[in-house]
Amino acid sequence: MTLSTQSRPTAGAPTPAPAALPTPAPPRTRRRRPRIVANTVAVLFCLVWVFPLYWMVNTAFKPADEVTTMTPIWLPLHPTFENFTRALTQDGFLVYLRNSTIVVVAAVLLSIVVGFLASAALSRFRFRGRRAILVAILFVQMIPSGALLIPLFLSFQTLGLLNSYVGLILAYVASVLPFSIWVMRGFFVSVPVEIEEAAKVDGAGTFRILWSVLFPLVMPGVIATSVFAFIAAWNDYLIAYVMLKDQGMYTLPVWLAGFSTNKGTDFGGLMAASVLFSIPVVVFFLIVQRRLVSGMTAGAVKG
């Protein structure tokens, strides 16, 4: 009788675990390279975008001899507020500020009201020609504003709206209305119809539903369009210069052009006035920036 030579595990001895397969290392270098490239491109883009703003503020605090020097001065050697004083004391500043405030506030409010009602009608009501209107709005939005300036001028001249606040306000509303309608319509489409039906069951009328139900739900879109209308009306120079003939009705962008005369350009005063001119836009944007970003991203992918 022969004994088996095969080894057997003894009692109490641990059994050897099977060898684990080696896991491949994650391609960290491949993941880091796209991030480095993307971050570098983003930093370069930000520097290119920020540099004009930096140079504007830098020049606003320089005296005249440092502004006109051939050697760039990256920081004011002798900072001064003389440029701001000269800009604020220039003739007609308060008048132009009043004109801009009246025109911009009226244009923003009117574009919100008309855009809200138009987008509600195009998203909730079914009528013949609705798709054609949407295509026409998108087509008008793609046309450059300068191409529409001459037809707009001739139309307003026929209607007697030149050199008036009403004509300038209507011109601004016409320029921002296609964008306002298209953005707010996306928010209306995203609102379930069951919400309106529940409000109708409770006895709410059409205007009650628009104001109490739909308006709070599309508020991000309203804010996004209001910011766009504010920036477009506040920064416009061409429409105001063409539509207005009386200098007493000019707006602030036209006032900025007054720093360039036949005798030369007051670069220090111009940069100081530009800084003052941009403050309201920056403050308004900082107040509503969160709602603006959420409204633009939400309304752009719906509808």
Score class of each variant (00 low, 15 high):
T158K: 14
Y250N: 15
G146V: 04
L286H: 08
L154H: 05
L97P: 15
I181H: 04
F127E: 08
G186W: 09
Y241M: 13
S123K: 05
V43Q: 02
I181A: 07
L44P: 09
E194N: 03
G264M: 02
Y54H: 10
Y172F: 04
R290K: 15
S175Q: 03
L170V: 02
F179T: 08
G146R: 07
V275F: 01
A107Q: 00
V50E: 08
F179A: 11
A20Y: 12
A204S: 07
K302G: 01
L75G: 03
V135Y: 00
S111E: 07
V213T: 02
V222I: 07
F81E: 10
L161K: 13
V104Y: 11
G12F: 03
A232M: 14
L161W: 12
F228H: 14
L217E: 05
S164I: 09
R30A: 04
G160T: 01
F116D: 00
F277S: 09
I133Q: 12
S111L: 05
G203S: 12
C46T: 14
P280K: 08
V293M: 08
I150N: 05
L177M: 10
G115Y: 00
N235I: 06
L149H: 03
W74M: 07
S111P: 08
F228I: 06
L117H: 05
A300Q: 11
R35I: 12
F259E: 13
S155V: 11
F187S: 06
